[in-house]
Write a protein that binds this DNA or RNA. Structure first.
Lengths: 339, 339
DNA sequence: TTGTACGCGTTATCAA
DNA sequence: TTGATAACGCGTACAA
């Protein structure tokens, strides 16, 4: 019955040659029809289009791009943890701008593993993606060098480059932490705790710096026993907060360097010391319904993604006079949620 | 100075031919070295590897796949809204299994626009992706037919196929809604409201069906004035809930078909009628700290993604005896959060 | 108006 | 052990 001899489904995608045969013309003519070249008689065009339709032919973009010189129309996005709403919003921002420019996004997740990141970056560049946006998980960025032979345009997200002249988009971690801490100190606190991640995480160390400066400016002493910086999960943060609040002279206010720490702290204090004042970096859904006063340093992760993609577009197009690397800082604003 | 004449950076990625020239061998030999073909003398191999290193050569996967027969190593993921944590978790599950099988994921977002979905699907298949996982936004799935000429293996996520024999993974929307509603009714309520999306959204209509059956089983009458099904955002849901709770004889319990409606309802009731009982589909972060008793139908979106990818792998490999389409339903469990 | 020849970067096959 | 040739699907220059 069927022309193929195959009973139910085509095993192979039709090619231009298949279309050409079906329409009894040369592949060249098919190509012309698909490019809407006017120098084709309308009868042959109709025959070709009929064949295209009958076979369900679609141009092979891969072969096309190979011929045209390796523009894949794909950009790579390497994030550390897509489960974090921050990064999914970030990805969405990237995708929006990329899509508007005819580019698709290949998404990959590193789980904060530098080795995995290195492998993924290699692989993406072997696929001849046109550019990459990377949230680097380690301090060594040598595998990202766009000037290295075979290098690819790169923009870093959320963390600055180390030792390489790369574009990047950052949150104002320092300023946001400083302002939020200042707002917290406006309550007149003199014993303030800090919950965060190890200083090896760049954002966290910046936030700690902002915290310290705000204390200094308010003339409040920093007590190292009030500082805990190794909580990566909500339960760990709750544990650490509970420890602080159980000291003989506990802090009366807490600043948390990210939302997981803020949430852990909230859980601990609502049980142990409900009147503790709370502030943190990162806004989160439901911050307003916790039922306690809360100050957060908020920013727009989607905006961050959009900006990163815009930087990448600029970097991808304009190549020859190597552009000065740009560092764009997205502001963080202080938001007060009422109790 | 430099061999190219170019001053600062390579304009073009080195190819096998470049390496071959640099090492004074044929491209074929380079290929063999890269494939660790043993039939190469160690001296030539060293020369080739040195050239590879010097030039920073990386194999062009695109050309390679073209030669090998259009396996791109890429799968497409088409979701409706990545900003929804459900879909980012889903994507993460897909990505995990894909990555473990050497596949990368091209991520695209439709914003629930069927036309955009159609265009994206076309484009992905023109890129010769090896398969697709799609969360369809419309009822017409004709553009997804894998049996159509040029069709691609497809698995649907979260919504069932209409009129096509496609694999899909679903949440037990009906059962979850029924169980959660039953748990709600255990409180002895006789006036129960429903907040959700229009029945055109499949998941929502299933959840409504579960809700209705639970009412029936408990001998509770369904009152249509207690049903509101057009809230897509938290504020809209809050508004609708407020309207219900302001009726002369308001419902004493509310069932919400998704987390946005649950959150809106929570906001409304905490102001208007704090003693209203609340249940909803979808778990969410912080459900336990709202300070009111809450029943949710919970499931694991990441598991859903993993399962979808596993179905796709199976579909992609085993081609010839067209497999029976499979429908896998992931269970939803009822969780009680205390007040 | 249509077709031929070649190239994009890689690899399978066969010959040397 | 190595190389020449052809081919994957498509596009461009040129010829017919």
């Amino acid at each position: 019955m069927s022309v193929d001899g195959s009973a139910h489904a085509p095993r192979r995608m039709p090619t231009m040659r298949d279309v050409a045969e079906q329409a009894s013309v040369s592949p060249m003519t098919v190509s012309r029809v698909l490019h809407e070249d006017p120098r084709v008689s309308s009868t042959t065009r109709d025959r070709v289009l009929a064949a295209v339709d009958a076979l369900g032919y679609r141009r092979n973009e891969v072969a096309r791009n190979l011929r045209l010189g390796s523009k894949s129309g794909l950009i790579g996005l390497v994030v550390t943890n897509l489960a974090n709403p921050f990064y999914s919003q970030f990805a969405l921002g990237v995708e929006a701008i990329a899509g508007a420019n005819g580019l698709r996004v290949v998404l990959t997740n590193t789980d904060e593993d530098p080795e995995r990141e290195r492998v993924l970056v290699e692989e993406l560049s072997a696929r001849r993606i046109d550019g990459m946006i990377v949230v680097p998980s380690g301090a060594d960025h040598s595998h990202l060098d766009p000037l290295a032979p075979g290098g690819v345009p790169v923009v870093l997200g959320a963390r600055p480059p180390s030792g390489l002249p790369l574009d990047c988009v950052l949150v104002d971690d320092f300023g946001g932490a400083r302002s939020a801490t200042a707002a917290l100190l406006a309550g007149g606190h003199t014993r303030v705790g800090f919950l965060g991640l190890p200083p090896s995480v760049w954002t966290s160390s910046e936030r700690f710096r902002g915290f310290c400066v705000a204390l200094e400016e308010a003339g409040v002493r920093l007590e190292s026993r009030y500082v805990r910086v190794s909580q990566r999960t909500i339960p760990a943060a709750e544990e650490a907060a509970r420890a602080l609040l159980s000291l003989r002279r506990p802090p009366t206010a807490l600043f948390c360097a990210n939302s997981r720490n803020t949430l852990g702290a909230f859980r601990a204090m609502s049980q142990v010391a409900p009147s503790t004042a709370l502030a943190g970096f990162d806004d989160f859904e439901l911050a307003d319904v916790l039922g306690v006063p809360l100050i957060v340093a908020a920013y727009d992760p989607r905006e961050l993604g959009r900006t990163a993609m815009e930087l990448l577009l600029r970097r991808m197009s304009d190549e020859d006079p190597p552009l000065e690397p740009r560092r764009i800082v997205v502001p963080a604003t202080v938001v007060h949620y009422g109790g």
